[in-house]
Every structure is written in structure tokens, then in C-alpha cells.
Design a protein around this nucleic acid. Structure first.
Lengths: 188, 188
DNA sequence: TGTACATCAGTGAACGCGCGTTCACTGATGTAC
DNA sequence: TGTACATCAGTGAACGCGCGTTCACTGATGTAC
């Protein structure tokens, strides 16, 4: 293979995207350099043509994984024009979201990692919390304390999906999701 | 040192307890055998007199860490005799709990690990979710759907503490805790 | 009660595997003429 | 447009460090008499 600037950039982004998915699926520690390169269709040796170190990639991947979350949820909100908050909550508590952490909200998957992580990771995490809170605050009905309500909603979403993923019994897992949905919607 | 049965059992438990704390602080992957033994006041060589493998210890430590959680929270509920649910929520959303994950609720710290973990870990996690739900369901005021209310409360607690730990800005972190407390209490 | 022996928790050096990283090399594409 | 050369993304073998695991040994305590 040659080395056009475009091809180089594409490879770089492909590796980064693979890593952003894997980091959500398996955490910051587990995905190895060889593994990630293989999933991107390459061998491990070329890795350092694109990233300074494994740590460098993982850092970027975590930031990207976090940033993707709010984009997706904002879009989910737009699908239900009449009730955007319902659209967001429905998407967040969907089985699809529960069963595919690799493309989902990184507030759930990277929470523990961020709590134990360095300032850069915690800043990226914090930024996403703020984004979500901003988004939900606007969607919550006026009258009450909207920000407080948004904090309750976001906490319940994150905690609910975390537990729904961790629990083994699928009935219990489903119950968590559907009950939370009803509870969070009935409050409107 | 000799080898009385009592001393042996004490050592075993000391290592296990150290591991249960470290596993909540740093996750299932990070704490090393030598490190854990050192913290228990021993050298690494004797480890295999007590556990079949690192994996074996970590499995037991995770189970213990999870089991300790509900015990503590049930106790926290008992401290406020008039309003046990308030006592539980207050303890869960306290800065002390946020700032000391090593002695806190493992539903928060081990959620991602359980989601990615084997059936045994997920069973242990599930069992604790059920324990918490049972406990909170009883404490929630009658009239409404108590179990649904318990699910909302538990999800908000878990998600709230997860985010409060991950976020860097202490003001935002405090806001999450105090706002959630008000929100969850005002509903009584 | 005292003595000789057996046991085995604990020690620390050594091993070996996995994985991040390095490096000499390849060959396709870009550039110069 | 065609040819010669330079570049550098990608390859895969090899290195080396960290860490889980093994093992020969120690010595304090338990047991037998």
C-alpha cells in the first residue's frame, strides 16, 4: 500500500473508531493493540505510524466514545417531534441500547473508568454530563425545577442501563428498563 | 511463622478483605497479586497457599464486595428510625460514600465489570440488585406501585453516585448528590 | 513437663507468557523531469 | 505521457518488561512420646 494523505487519514480514523467501540464494550484496559489493529484490517506493527502509544489511542477513543453519546441521544430526541423527551428516554432505555454497549452512551460504560482515571478523562466525562443535562433540561416541562428534574432523569437512565446490563436474568433486566420508562414518562 | 488453623483463616480473610476493597477502588483487572499480598502484610509467594489463582481471589472478592453493600445500606436505613428510607438515601448520596468507593456499594463500582463478566459475577450482582430492591420496596410509602418506585430510586442512586465520582468539578459533583437527595425525598 | 520430630504458612528467587513497543524491510503511490 | 526516484504506510519478527505462577527452602508451631 502507498501513502496518500487521504488513505492515511482514513486508516487513522478507522482505528480510532474501532477503539471507541471496543472501549465501550470491554473497558479501557482490555483491548490490545494487535487486536484493535486486526479489527481495523491491519497488522500491529503500523500502529505507531498513527498513535504515540496505546495510552494515546485509548485516551482519544474514550473521548470520542463519550462525545458520540450526546449526538445520538439528541438525534433520538428529534425522532419524536411531539415529545422529544419521550423519544430520548425510549431510546436510552431500549433493549437495543442495553444490548449494544459498543455504540451506546459512554456515561454508563466509562463511569467507573473515569472515576479512577486521570483529569483529562474526567473532564471529557464531565463535559458529556453537562451536555446531557443541558439537553434534558430543555426538554423537561417547565414549571418545576427543570435542572433538578434533568439530574434525576439522567441519573436514573445511567443507573438503570448499568444495572440492566449487569444483571443476568433477562426478565429482571427488562423489568428495570420498562418500569423506569413508565416511571420517567408518567412524571410529565 | 507457624500454622495454627486460626492464623491461617485470619490471613485468608485479611487477603480477601483487602481484595474486596481494592476491587471496588480499582476494578477487577488492576490489583495485582503481589500488591494485594503486600497490603495484607505478606509476600506474594504464599498467595497460592490460600487461593487457587488470582482469578479465584478476584471472583471471591467481587462477591464479598457486592454482599457487603446491602448490609451497610440496611444499617444506614436503621439509623433514621422515623424515616429509614431517608437514612438510606442520605447515606448513599453522602460525600463520604462518593469519596470512598473502597468501602461503598459495589453496584456502582462493579456495574461495568459485571456487564462484561461471567455468569457467576452477574449472578452475584443480580442478587444484590434484588436485595436492594427488596429493601427499598419495603421502605417506600404504600399506595403507589412500591416496586416501581424502588426501581426508580435505586437507579437514580446508582447512576447519581457513578456520575458524581466520575466528574472532575466538585461543585457539579456536589450538585448531583444534593439535588438527587432533594428530588428523591420530596417524592415521599 | 520436657524433648524430638513433623507439618505447612510464609519467603523470595526464578520462570514464562502476553503484550506494548521497536526496527529493518517492502512496495505502492506521489513527485520530478 | 512516460520513466526514475523518493517517500512512507504497512508488515512481521524480535525485544523486554510486568505479572501470574512455581518451587525449594525456612522456621515457628503443633503433635507424639
Amino acid at each position: 500500500m502507498g501513502h496518500s494523505q487521504v488513505a492515511r487519514a482514513q486508516t487513522h480514523e478507522r482505528v480510532l473508531r474501532v477503539a471507541a467501540r471496543r472501549v465501550r464494550e470491554d473497558g479501557l484496559e482490555h483491548p490490545g493493540v494487535s487486536e484493535l489493529m486486526r479489527e481495523a484490517g491491519l497488522t500491529h506493527g503500523g500502529f505507531y505510524k498513527h498513535f504515540a502509544s496505546r495510552e494515546d489511542l485509548i485516551r482519544q477513543a474514550a473521548a470520542l466514545a463519550l462525545a458520540k453519546g450526546t449526538q445520538q441521544m439528541a438525534q433520538a430526541a428529534r425522532t419524536d417531534e411531539a415529545e422529544p423527551l419521550t423519544g430520548l428516554i425510549e431510546a436510552y432505555l431500549s433493549r437495543r441500547h442495553r444490548d449494544d454497549p459498543g455504540t451506546g452512551c459512554a456515561l454508563v460504560t466509562l463511569g467507573s473508568a473515569a472515576a479512577r482515571g486521570d483529569n483529562e478523562l474526567r473532564d471529557a466525562y464531565e463535559e458529556q454530563v453537562r451536555q446531557y443535562l443541558g439537553l434534558i433540561t430543555e426538554l423537561v416541562p417547565a414549571g418545576q425545577d427543570q435542572r433538578a428534574e434533568a439530574i434525576l432523569v439522567l441519573s436514573a437512565l445511567v443507573g438503570g442501563v448499568l444495572m440492566a446490563r449487569a444483571v443476568r436474568d433477562e426478565n429482571l433486566s427488562d423489568e428495570l428498563l420498562t418500569t423506569l420508562f413508565d416511571k420517567l414518562i408518567e412524571r410529565r
